[in-house]
Design a protein around this nucleic acid. Structure first.
Lengths: 191, 191
DNA sequence: CTGTTCGCCTAACGCTGTTAGGTATACGCC
DNA sequence: GGCGTATACCTAACAGCGTTAGGCGAACAG
């Protein structure tokens, strides 16, 4: 087996990423150091460089993993059917995804880390995820690009307000349903 | 004159804040160091501690200044009159404020800096600014708390998407007007 | 059994925010 | 005008940061 070592290597990479996610969740997206990640996996900081080129490369891998998770969440959604129901489901799924891990959302949706730009591959994954979201909206007759942009703005806005201003409550969560109604009223699904 | 010195001190404080704003605008909200700020005002980093308790205190002063600026922008708005026109104006003013300085917006509207929480005084100012916004919306018959929350979510969402995904264009700016229409259709102003 | 690659280490660099301690200047007062 | 004090700044230094260089033992390939 030539890839025994390669598999072990990949497993360690995932272990490092898991530690980084954990720390980011506890202390904020940028509130952790490589030495802390190293501690969590039983290494010294310089050893991490055998698995990632630098700290930004860890952020990049987290970015890709985050969009992968969002892609899976979107793929798990029913397409077609009653537009009202489908839009309600996709809005709720997106909102839940956003508030479930605010650090992840900052990484995926807000440009928060000073020098960081996702790599081409990671960016492609983000694009594919948004394409998939467009398909879901398209399946219930929401096709105009402007309508999709408005949709993302409304629901990132709701989720972001929820996280920033009422982290332990549901003040904006309760607005998901009325928002879908508002959206549907102004953007009646095309046949 | 007992406060000659006090005035000079305050002037230096403002000079430091101006340098911090400049650097934050160029390199991102957290992309600058105290030594760079000190350089910009012709000092060494430790001397800044004569003016601010620590770096977070600089962020706090910037937070207060940012909300002060937003308060002035909101106060400059016409209240009462045709609801459609007023809402269009306030939406545009808020959107412009947000995109004019994305670093400022991250500081005011997103919890981005790992250990930072605004001081009580700064937070009060933020509250007063939002109260003022509520008054403006109330003046054209938007009074339900849920309607105000929805309003902030929609327009922070639009502006945030604009900044994150089309920083040099107007892809979401063009959606301000349709968004106001959408909002009005679902939230008809009370008499 | 040998040579190479891999996984991890220690030491160290320049940077960061921050503290301690010193010195010259500007002020209030007699 | 001279004196004592508070102020405005400095240098030196600390621990922690991301990162690089170089070394050593174990695991692998032939």
């Amino acid at each position: 087996m030539p890839d025994r070592r390669a598999r072990r290597h990949e497993a360690t990479r995932q272990e490092i990423l898991a530690a980084a996610w954990q720390l980011a969740g506890e202390r904020g997206l940028t509130g952790w150091s490589l030495r802390e990640v190293a501690d969590a996996v039983g290494m010294r900081a310089p050893s991490l460089y055998g698995y990632f080129e630098n700290k930004d490369a860890i952020y990049d891998a987290m970015f890709a993993q985050g969009y992968q998770q969002l892609l899976e969440a979107v793929d798990g959604l029913p397409t077609a059917g009653d537009p009202r129901t489908v839009l309600q489901d996709v809005a709720t799924a997106f909102f839940d995804f956003y508030v479930a891990d605010p650090a992840r959302s900052q990484l995926l949706f807000l440009r928060v880390i000073p020098g960081f730009t996702p790599s081409e591959g990671s960016y492609d994954l983000a694009e594919r995820t948004l394409d998939r979201l467009r398909e879901v909206l398209g399946s219930v007759g929401i096709n105009r690009p402007e309508a999709v942009d408005l949709w993302t703005a409304v629901f990132t806005g709701l989720a972001s307000q929820q996280v920033s201003n009422d982290p332990d409550g549901d003040r904006w969560a309760r607005l998901i349903e009325p928002s879908v109604e508002m959206f549907l009223a102004s953007e009646p699904p095309a046949a």
